[in-house]
Design a binder for these strands. Structure first.
Length: 670
DNA sequence: GGCAGAGTACTTTTT
DNA sequence: GTACTCTGCC
């Protein structure tokens, strides 16, 4: 038996051994799916069934793609691994469009805009329709309707909502607008290639011949377009292996269609189905609870997690507290107790449904000086300062209208609405950037002209210094942006110097990321271009968490997917929180969220709920989560008001408290 | 361009 | 009850 099968169970071996034809791998939580993906990739190459560049593995996150490449590299070497196409769906789409930008009718250095920019474009469009503007539509809903039209057309899911109606009119306008701006949004990154493959038989065949084997990770999270995209790419050979777990589908609200994985055997009738049910992560007590939770899910592929560790472990605990303050205090206390018992802080995760819960918890940990890391909140890319800096860099290297408009008057250089209108009004089909230059030269006496010309000069200098000079990119950005008084602008935007400083840090971080790329790939214009590309796909390259940091991990249930921790706290198991009050009828997805949280725990799971929680400024009684009522009560141990003190502990604690009080009193007296 | 007051949302956020 | 965004006015 070859090395690729070593240490694998029979089902994993089957999956790794699979050659031609469609394959569905139902990989339960902690069942070693990445190992299977890596080994199958390695085996196909090592056995000479294909060459590395003819294998394509699609993932959802940049991190997952990196991890996969890293593990393939360990087995086959860096050189071979680098040739495998492992990347995100969007990364694939971007590369496709770059290669075919002429056929795609896009400018050579077209940009990719994120959700925020896309929404701004839409909002701008809305201004031309005063009747729509008045209707006070929800932009998220409107954008979702537009996506729906772009991907599936107008179907019976359309109702009488103002958003539905408006989207019919706005969808074509929105797409035309993006074309005019010389950018694509994330959706278009996949839609346009799909359209192109469908319209050109030549292109389709070319793409279908490009790979011998395709694999898709986290298949339960694919959306409609991604399914069609994969269909199209693997249409020639049908060597398509998808890996996923329908029980961990938690992104339905973002367009993920669980039907893609549920219906895969129907879509690919001859597909081979392999279930990876052996769990290598958790104790059997935790798995029993997990199985009991998910068994209540309506639509799913039947499977159970079977324990492999010969360890029953302790029964998961459920603490019931009076209110959220008690919850915070007691969880902090538990964390410290477990730390004393030998858990490191980084072995402990605190999970919750919504970010606000994390904020609450954060206060408690800080008061007790427990080191922690809070993930989530606003990403670097969504910070205004980060977007500004990226707009400066893009405008210096290959400007598009969105990036240039963002900075044309930043910081203020006298370019107001009037000037912008004048620039727009210039005849011809030149880009906005070119027109701005034209206008500035034609109106030398205007104050705005001076501003625009100095901006051009700044951008030219920035381009030269970033792609060539010797000072680090961090130093160049810092210095140059101070020179044009962007630093002053940031200072003025915030009340205190401290928050301005922390915002300025975004500027420096971006510089550091660029320097990191220079170190790896050499300093050149091409590297700067690649840097922009990566940043636009939100690949910061710096999300590899510091493995040495000994900090309690705090994150939402969505963010914890794919991770594991010896000790997990799962907070707020209450109606209206989990399941969340604002869920539609999709209880199943909320239940899966609960399931995802539970299956993160390796050794010990502690759940909490409270009887009163503050909502909208009022203390309100809250009911236990319906999911707690569904499960067999014998699977958990319920404790009211926190863990009872062990003998002797109470005395020790009281003594400590008195000591502290005495000390404080003493200080006051002096 | 900057400020103040009104209005509104208080779920999650792989790209 | 609060924090953030938008609008309108100076």
């Amino acid at each position: 038996m070859s090395t690729w099968f070593q240490g694998l169970n029979p089902e994993q071996q089957q999956a790794v051994a699979h050659n031609e034809g469609p394959l569905l791998i139902l990989a339960g939580a902690g069942s070693g799916k990445t190992t299977v993906l890596v080994s199958r990739t390695g085996r196909l190459i090592a056995e000479g069934r294909t060459t590395p560049e003819r294998v394509c593995v699609l993932t959802f996150t940049n991190k997952a793609a990196r991890e996969l490449k890293h593990r393939v590299a360990k087995k086959l070497g860096e050189k071979v691994a680098a040739k495998v196409w492992a990347g995100t769906f969007h990364g694939f789409g971007l590369r496709f469009l770059k290669e075919h930008h002429v056929a795609a009718d896009l400018p050579k250095g077209f940009g990719v805009i994120d959700q925020g920019d896309a929404q701004a474009v839409l909002k701008d469009l809305l201004r031309d329709h005063s009747d729509y503007e008045k209707a006070r539509m929800n932009l998220d809903v409107l954008m979702a309707c537009i996506h729906h039209i772009r991907t599936k057309g107008r179907d019976d899911s359309f109702d009488n909502s103002p958003e539905s109606a408006a989207s019919v009119v706005l969808a074509p306008k929105y797409m035309r607008k993006l074309r005019g701006l010389g950018v694509v949004d994330f959706e278009e990154l996949l839609l346009r290639p799909l359209q192109m493959m469908r319209e050109s038989e030549e292109l389709r065949q070319k793409m279908q011949r490009r790979f011998d084997f395709m694999m898709v990770d986290e298949f339960q999270d694919t959306n409609h377009t991604q399914m069609l995209f994969v269909d199209e790419l693997s249409g020639g050979h049908r060597n398509l292996a998808v890996v996923g777990d329908d029980d961990q589908s938690i992104y339905g609200w973002r367009g993920a269609e669980i039907q893609n994985i549920l219906g895969f055997p129907k879509r690919y009738k001859d597909c081979h189905v392999i279930r990876l049910e052996r769990n290598y992560r958790s104790t059997s007590s935790i798995l029993n609870l997990a199985n009991s939770i998910i068994a209540n899910s309506e639509t799913r592929h039947d499977k159970v997690l079977k324990p492999s560790l010969n360890n029953k472990g302790e029964l998961p605990e459920l603490f019931v507290y009076e209110n959220e303050e008690a919850e915070v205090d007691q969880v902090v206390r538990e964390v410290m107790e477990f730390q004393k018992k030998g858990y490191r802080y980084k072995d402990i995760a605190i999970l919750y449904r919504s970010n606000s819960q994390g904020g609450l918890m954060e206060g408690g940990l800080r008061r007790s000086q427990v080191p922690y890391k809070l993930s989530g909140g606003t990403a670097l890319f969504d910070r205004k300062e980060a977007k500004d800096v990226m707009a400066f860099i893009r405008s210096a290297i290959s400007p598009n209208e969105i990036s240039f408009r963002r900075i044309i008057n930043l910081p203020a250089r006298g370019v107001g609405d009037k000037t912008l209108e004048a620039i727009e009004g210039l005849p011809g089909s030149a880009s906005f950037f070119a027109k701005a230059s034209e206008w500035a030269k034609a109106n030398p006496n205007e104050k705005a002209s001076e501003g625009i010309l100095s901006l051009f000069e700044f951008l030219r200098g920035l381009k030269a210094q970033l792609s060539g000079g010797s000072p680090s990119a961090e130093a160049v950005l810092d210095h140059e942006l101070r020179r044009i008084k962007y630093r002053e602008y940031v200072n003025q935007s915030y009340r205190d110097a401290k928050s301005a400083d922390s915002r300025w840090l975004c500027v420096n971080i971006i510089g550091r990321i660029m320097d990191g790329m220079f170190a790896k790939e050499g300093r050149s214009l091409a590297t700067v271009e690649k840097f922009i590309e990566r940043m636009e796909l939100r690949d910061s390259l710096e999300d590899q968490d510091d493995p040495d940091a000994n900090e309690v991990q705090m994150m939402t249930l969505h963010a914890c997917k794919g991770l594991e921790f010896p000790l997990v706290f799962l907070l707020g198991l209450e109606e209206d929180l989990l399941p969340h009050a604002r869920l539609g009828q999709n209880t199943d997805e909320e239940r899966r969220l609960f399931y995802v949280g539970v299956t993160r725990a390796q050794k010990h799971l502690i759940m909490t709920r409270v009887e009163q929680r503050k909502r909208y400024g009022q203390m309100r009684p809250v009911a236990p989560s319906r999911f707690l009522l569904e499960i067999d009560t014998a699977l958990i141990k319920e404790l009211r008001g926190g863990r009872p003190f062990a003998p002797g502990d109470r005395e020790a604690m009281l003594a400590g408290l008195y000591q502290k009080l005495n000390k404080q009193m003493g200080q006051k007296d002096i």
